[in-house]
Design a protein around this nucleic acid. Sequence first.
RNA 1: GCCCGGGUGGUGGAAUAGGUAGACACGCAGGACUUAAAAUCCUGUAGUUAUUGUGGCUGUGCGGGUUCGAUUCCCGCCCCGGGUACCA
Length: 935
Amino acid sequence: MEYDFNNIERYWQKYWKTHQTFQADDITEKIKYYVLDMFPYPSGAGLHIGHPLGYIASDIYARHKRAEGYHVLHPIGFDSFGLPAEQYAIQTGQHPAKTTEINIQRYKEQLSKLGFSFDWSREFRTSDPSYYRWTQWIFIQLFNSWYDQEAQRARPIESLIEAFEKNGNQTIKAAGTTTNPFTAEEWKNSTKAKKEIILQNYRLAFRSKATVNWCPELGTVLANDEVKDRKSERGGYPVYQKEMVQWSMRITAYAERLLKGLDEIDWPEALKESQSYWIGKSFGARIRFELTKGNSIEIFTTRPDTIFGTTFMVLAPEHPIVNQITTAEHRLAVEAYIEEIKKRSELERLSDVKNVSGQFTGAYTLHPFTGKKLPLYLSDYVLANYGTGAIMAVPAHDSRDHRFAKRFGLEILEVISGGSDVQTEAHETKEGYCIHSDFLNKLEVKVAIKKAIEKIEEKGIGQGMINYRLRDAVFSRQRYWGEPIPIYYKKGIAVPLPEQKLPLLLPDIDKYIPTEEGEPPLRRAKAWAWDEKQQKVVNNELMDEIQVFLLDTNTMPGWAGSSWYFLRYMNPKNEERFVNQQAENYWQNVDLYIGGAEHATGHLLYARFWHKFLKDRDWVSTEEPFKKLINQGMILGNSAFVARVNGTKKFISAGLVKNQDVQELHIDIQLLKHGDELDVEKFKKWRPEFAEAELILEGGKFFCRRKVEKMSKSKYNVINPDEICEKYGADTLRMYEMFLGSLEQSKPWNTQGIIGVHQFLRKFWRLFHSTGVFHTDQEPPTAEESKVLHQAIKKIRKDIENLSFNTSVSAFMIAVNALTALKCCKRIILEPLVILIAPFAPHIAEALWQRLGHEDSVSLARIPNHDPQHLVEEIIEYPVMFNGKLRFKAHFQANIPTTEIEQQILKYPKIQDYLNGKTLKKIIIIPKKVINIVL
RNA sequence: GCCCGGGUGGUGGAAUAGGUAGACACGCAGGACUUAAAAUCCUGUAGUUAUUGUGGCUGUGCGGGUUCGAUUCCCGCCCCGGGUACCA
């Protein structure tokens, strides 16, 4: 009987579905294992061959863990709020929920064809009201919490209010926006509105006026991680800095814990490093410089040791003090400069970092130690939202200050010896010792930093401090397709909705664009007001500012829903709580998380932040959400290009292009014949504008240029998994994607080798068949057959554990080749192999398992252990002479003492041959590997 | 610029507490079976050289070093991929 993969796969996919083979329980006695994929955003393009890579890997691992006896949670869902669906809605007027639903159905269909062992009963979407109800709930908890820096944890806002009532904000150490000190009396005498303004400085979800990334094209603000190269990550539209009142998340309160937590999780080093860089902890000092006119300016520096090298000061143009300190004769120039900076940022400051700009304010500060007058400049190389927005410039030891000094002809004063000439180049390394530095002279940099901080604190002009690059995350979006923020505004005070009234449902609106007044789309909703008495959403006309108030018109960002979804899978149907406490206690956190590295500073950071917050408030029991994480590499496409002579209809074959002025156009890879040759007929039919194309051939053929790049619909290099499944079957596709190379590496898709994996599966199938019918033998195995099996078990189990799936596929091939050669069809050898291969190729395994007479699914069978008895290791006959030494390799069981090995070696006949007539000087035994015998 | 990852046959890739480099697979060449094809099976396949039936030499991006021994460790370069961008 032939290996009819199409029927087999269809049958078993249906079987798993009807039997709910992979459904997990919320709690059991068994040890848990939680394998999670980053859930997909269902885009309109459907899945391409690259998407399933991570899912296949996680599925193999999940199935393997089940076979090892773990109780495995392997869920899937959809990250269904997001920009593309909304952009599409704006263009077509179609409700994003509709397009999203269509896309999800397509995804589900494609996913089901690959035979994943997902527990579909736990599926949900982030746009389900029953899900986002809890996203809104978490938001309210964040709103009602503050971060106690003494206790290093978040606490309910009531405890902060209590503290204020007792002692004002004098004694409390809370993470927050800097606020003026107040006493208990002052607090008690404040109005409700005033109190709320103060509290906003401490809440973990808070409203504040801040410089944000504004993207006019998308009509919304964006978080830092959503901006790449001053363009929006989605769509690539320009992003500008703008002052706006926005909701933010006080992630900075968790900076230290987010950094420290990296030590305890098993993540790729590269990813940890990028998070750690994003958090950007630096040690330094805050130093106050007095102005000649009585004001003072605080700066932050990591190099207080270079304080004597300060020759000028620089402020960010947006610094609030600028107006106060600018002298009359410089006012015009300063205002012009600030204006210019604003304009420049609108013109997108063409990344001309080297181009120095700045403006003198006319003001001077006094050096705190020497009393020297230091001119005060403005420049856009100083950022308003890092440190204090002001710096002491040390041109001799900072390249940016150096550039600035050169441009404006300022003094460059060397204070750290050991570099080259500081007049031509800054000496930035922390090597050397201090000179021209009074009390720091002759000290090494590291010592000098400490000493300088000591002196600064002694003098009362500043203190040592730790600074983080991490910024609070802007949380509101002026968009429609997201979770509504469950807040209404009562006389300007933000009030959260009662928890039991959640979810606050996303209203229907007529158009998905901002209002004519430029307000967010939700302002278009007819019923978007909260009636405090009735506790429900009512029509806007009823708004009276007494009982009925306007709801927040912002929505949450894409990362809100994905910051806690892994918790919901533990107990997805719960209507009382975001996750049942027992279920949370049982499943704890994700043991293995597989997904792309592009989420390093977005999702993976926010999810850790929320998780730590939930831990602080005792809603979850673990500190970190994802114990082990693997980034799967991308599968790249091999794009094809045709070269068109600019402004003509003439196309030139790739080999003839040379230096001609051509434009390269992506063409569909379906238009290629074999290799790089273009199918001219198909090409001419592909697009009407190519119908009359004039093609310059090369030896009668037209060749395309190829390039490996990201697989994407717009590059016409997409390979659809459905086609591969049809032709070779899902099992082949699964194994081939693993066989292609290591999971973490990016690699171009290449169909060439797939036949090898397919042939392997057919060969495996044939092991169980003779002359067309299913046939196995009951005979006991020979030693050789046992060895093949047990070697395979040992190697494959080890490789799966290391997530080295490519080498485990090879191990299968070796075993099957060996058994084919041995003509082995013994049940006792073959049956364990079926269990072993099931995680990789589940359909064929099920089909064979059934034919072997089992009634249950092979997915419920336990994976066999290798028996070391069958793997007795022995001396390999491989003695070689070199450099006067006899070298050979031997394998021993690890626990044999070395003296024993020596004796055995000497007994070995070949050794005796070599020793013939010579005396033995020394035996060097390198454990487990090689033995050198000196004659 | 800075940080991370990686350069191994015609191709995808194995092998790193240093120990037969090229597992496994594709492709290619030859053969068996067949009227033929498909399918299947077998043999060969880093390069080079020779006294071509068991050898020699060269080979893991380049140049050095440590070592009896280096794809693996160290130093200095080159190239490719990814991340990041004035963070004081």
